[in-house]
Write a protein that binds this DNA or RNA. Structure first.
Lengths: 158, 158
DNA sequence: TTGCTCCTCACGTCACGTGAGGTGGC
DNA sequence: TTGCTCCTCACGTCACGTGAGGTGGC
């Protein structure tokens, strides 16, 4: 699917036309983050915008936006710092590359198994972290429910 | 229950003998936080140690330690900042006071109902926050499970 | 030319980390 | 006196927030 030619939109550098590229202001507004945050992620190597205009303005693709959402999810939901997040994203990027190479058999069979085993271990480790957080939150919720129940009791015989 | 007189322990200022008071080093070690963090919480009015020695050394009671654990829980599990945590702790403190006053009928009946209703609303609001976090984490876990399953598929026909 | 968006410094903030230099009780 | 713990500044760090001053395309 090719989007109709829109005025003022730079050509998609990586070839996959994923719709119009956004300026940093529009991207930040759509994501609910600050422009400063987007520039900071780039400075740390977490997210490089897909393009720049000849004038030097950053242009963000739909994939770029999805990546930022992933960053925020890992930050707010799991409490990871940006260095840890970089580790997770790097793993996911490498896994995507391996998947790409899969039909074109550029990677040897043994090497494939080795990499896949590595990825599997990392994903399962992340799953453990998530599960632990879920368990703690369920305990927290149970305590809250008990507290709420006690207030109801007090209200009954007040 | 009165603990046997231990050497080198300052008397409990608030009367309720809750065991030996700890120095800041021992308290920090037991809690797994830094001494700096404990002093910082005090500076913000989040936690005032139960006592001080004549020489000016901070002494932490078991209740103080529990309060720090609560602070860390709200920080790491829910991602609250220290100002928000102060709000939650203040609510819980006021609720504890109200509970104390309950048999001694110093508080009027209408006033009691009003306060209890207020506390109930705050607790239920906190429960909503926790529930939302749980839901998001369950979604995150489901995505991870799907990813893990796909890796297993790749390993099967590798 | 006027607006508007965007650019790069650069200092401020929050929640501490990390010494620096000094005090106090066995 | 020697160790050890603790004290109060005070500067550094991480993840940005917030202007300051300048550039660039309709």
């Amino acid at each position: 699917v090719t989007s109709p030619a829109a005025a003022n939109v730079a050509p998609d550098a990586n070839g996959t036309d994923s719709g119009p590229l956004l300026g940093i202001g529009a991207a930040a507004a759509r994501l609910g983050v600050s422009e400063r945050a987007l520039r900071y992620y780039q400075q740390l190597g977490l997210l490089t915008p897909s393009g720049r205009t000849p004038g030097g303005l950053r242009r963000y693709s739909a994939g770029d936006l999805a990546r930022v959402e992933r960053i925020r999810e890992l930050q707010t939901l799991l409490g990871f710092n940006l260095d840890e997040i970089k580790g997770v994203l790097d793993t996911e990027d490498r896994l995507a590359v391996l998947r790409e190479e899969y039909q074109s058999s550029r990677t040897g069979d043994a090497r494939r198994r080795e990499l896949l085993g590595e990825f599997l271990a990392l994903r399962e480790q992340l799953r453990e972290t998530v599960q632990a957080k879920i368990d703690r939150l369920l305990g927290f919720r149970a305590d809250l429910d008990a507290s709420i129940e006690r207030i109801h009791d007090l209200l009954r015989d007040a």
